[in-house]
């Protein structure tokens, strides 16, 4: 199938601003799904609220556009009640890690087979540019007019600490890597987290004088490096890209099947 067979064309052009990285994330995700030859009926996409959440309207899967921060909780209900389905949960950084932070760490802890994508644009875009838990110290936002004193989470470290069994990071510039990582994440049996640095030229870029979408993608190119590279040793400020964790652990739904087996034997 072609990429366009996976989208709801009648809703295009989409709602995202010119140069928004989220469109590129959707592009890479569709290519990953296409390369796996998955049927549209076996995929459920669950999203929350915010710019990121609009992705679920554009893809032709079973789509569940939920409430702010709770996408992973809804997805947990879908997955556990019908484990053969593939769950993909794209979230924004505020959606996943501020209001949804608790669900994020607990889904990771359970190692339930869901692919969580954190589309990190470091800002609340839909509401007009307030700082998020990934904006970082010293950034500017409409709710940090004198500069932000909140420190940022490191999504990757957080996911690893919470127990995610697949953790990766890429950017909207590194599309070939991103697509490959998303493919691996979907294939991974367990909770997978993919953080994607995704530019918001309209709010984060403008507020922080980072230039156009193109300029911001140039920064992703220059400010990131493959995991464990020589460049990282020389310049510790570089952000690492790649797969940080990929390990096999008992998956939640499989474990629950064992509980059912145990309970039924006792009958």
């Amino acid at each position: 199938m072609a990429i366009k067979d996976y989208i709801r064309e009648r809703f295009f052009p989409h709602i995202w601003c010119p140069g928004c990285g989220h469109g590129t994330v959707m592009n890479s995700l569709l290519r990953a799904i296409e390369s796996l030859g998955m049927s549209k009926n076996e995929i459920v996409m669950v999203s929350g609220i915010g710019c990121s959440s609009r992705i679920s309207g554009y893809v032709d899967f079973h789509t569940l556009h939920t409430i702010h921060g709770r996408a992973l909780a809804f997805a947990t209900g879908v997955k556990l009640s019908r484990p053969e389905l593939n769950l993909i949960v794209p979230m924004g950084d505020g959606d996943a890690l501020a209001i949804g932070g608790n669900h994020f760490i607990h889904a990771a802890r359970r190692n339930i087979d869901i692919t969580a994508i954190v589309m990190n644009n470091r800002i609340y875009g839909m509401t007009g540019g307030q700082f998020s838990p990934l904006s970082g110290y010293g950034t500017m936002a409409t709710t940090a007019p004198y500069s932000n004193i909140d420190h940022a989470f490191d999504t990757v470290e957080l996911a690893i600490a919470a127990g995610a069994t697949f953790v990766a990071r890429s950017t909207s510039y590194h599309v070939k890597q991103l697509s490959k990582i998303l493919r691996d994440a979907i294939l991974h049996e367990g909770f997978s987290v993919v953080e994607v640095l995704s530019q918001c030229p309209t709010y984060f870029g403008r507020k922080n004088r980072l230039g156009s979408a193109v300029d911001m993608m140039e920064q992703y190119k220059n400010d990131t490096t493959p995991i464990g590279s020589k460049a990282k040793k020389e310049n510790p400020d570089l952000i690492e890209r790649g797969i940080f964790v990929q390990k096999e652990m008992p998956e939640y739904c499989v474990e629950y099947d064992k509980i059912i087996e145990k309970a039924m034997k006792g009958n």
């Binding site: 989409h14 140069g19 928004c20 469109g23 590129t24 592009n27 909207s172 599309v175």
Partner: peptide, 9 residues
């Protein structure tokens, strides 16, 4: 690469 990066498909 243009096709892969285009946010608007």
């Amino acid at each position: 690469l243009c096709e892969l990066r285009c946010p608007d498909l």
